[in-house]
Design a protein around this nucleic acid. Structure first.
Length: 259
DNA sequence: CATAATGTTTAAGA
DNA sequence: GTCTTAAACATTAT
């Protein structure tokens, strides 16, 4: 479930591999992993992960100031740090082996993510048009980004080049708490709604990180633990309905979130 | 067996 | 060209 909060949890997992010599790289699916053995030997072997950096849904693991590993988790990817004799999880695609024999495993059930080496992380961000991390933005910056979009507000929130980190699931929660209809045009909202959206974006994402990105542990008053068609709205007498926006299924409460 | 799934990229419309 | 939207992508679980 990799949206911003999930990737933040993976980042913390990756932190455990920091400052230990990287001695090996195991590839389980060479068609998927965009880092081969010789590239590993030339750029990573013998070095250490010095720092981790998350931007939106991307995770970077730096081996020096500019270069390192970039990971994206698609819809089903995750990262796990294991001690010496633990088995790699099912669907492990590749693993970094550290000097103490501990391993950092990248797992993906569907092949929609990426693992690769980049020489210049800054260039990678620019080339892929990855927008500013939504938790790094000030309210004013957030509003100026959103108010420029003529698209449906849900699509705007999920557009990674506008602001990065929000996906289909958390977008539903942010809109629910802000009482904004997902198909409302982003640039047609008023100043007050934009502010509300920003406030709830920060609140929801931080709460999710606090709960280890486990949606079921979110407060009962949230939409996500109840995110199913026909369920009772946690805030009013209405029922949750399914709605398709830009080809993705979402859920909302028609009586709380009016157009 | 058909469908839907947290992701992004693409191609098509406007 | 630019912006927005829907389909396509690959694979698995239901």
């Amino acid at each position: 479930m990799p949206e911003l909060p999930d990737v933040e949890i993976f980042r913390k997992e990756a932190e455990m591999s920091k400052n230990s010599e990287i001695t090996g790289f195991e590839i389980d699916d060479k068609d998927f992993v965009e880092l081969n053995q010789s590239k590993f030997n030339n750029n990573l072997k013998g070095k250490k992960f010095k720092d981790t950096l998350r931007r939106g849904k991307y995770l970077f693991m730096k081996v020096d100031d500019e270069s390192g590993i970039v990971m994206h988790f698609g819809m089903t990817g995750f990262l796990v740090y294991k001690k010496e004799n633990d088995d790699a999880p099912d669907y492990t695609k590749c693993s970094f082996v550290l000097k103490n024999k501990h391993k950092l495993h990248y797992i993906s059930k569907r092949k929609l993510g990426h693992v690769k080496y980049v020489g210049k992380i800054g260039d990678f961000i620019e080339e892929n048009d990855i927008g500013p991390d939504v938790l790094e933005l000030s309210e004013a910056e957030f509003i100026s980004k959103l108010s420029e979009k003529n698209s449906m507000v849900k699509s705007a929130l999920m557009d990674q080049s506008t602001v990065s980190g929000i996906g289909n699931v958390y977008a539903d929660e942010i809109l629910f708490q802000s009482e904004v209809h997902p198909k409302q045009k982003a640039n047609k909202l008023d100043e007050k709604k934009w502010k509300t959206l920003h406030k709830n974006t920060v609140k929801v994402l931080k709460k999710a990180i606090e709960k280890n990105a486990d949606v079921s542990k979110l407060p009962k008053s949230y939409l996500l633990p109840n995110r199913e068609e026909g369920n009772d709205c946690p805030k009013c007498e209405g029922k949750i309905e399914k709605i398709k926006v830009s080809g993705r299924n979402g859920y909302y409460c028609p009586s709380c979130q009016k157009k």
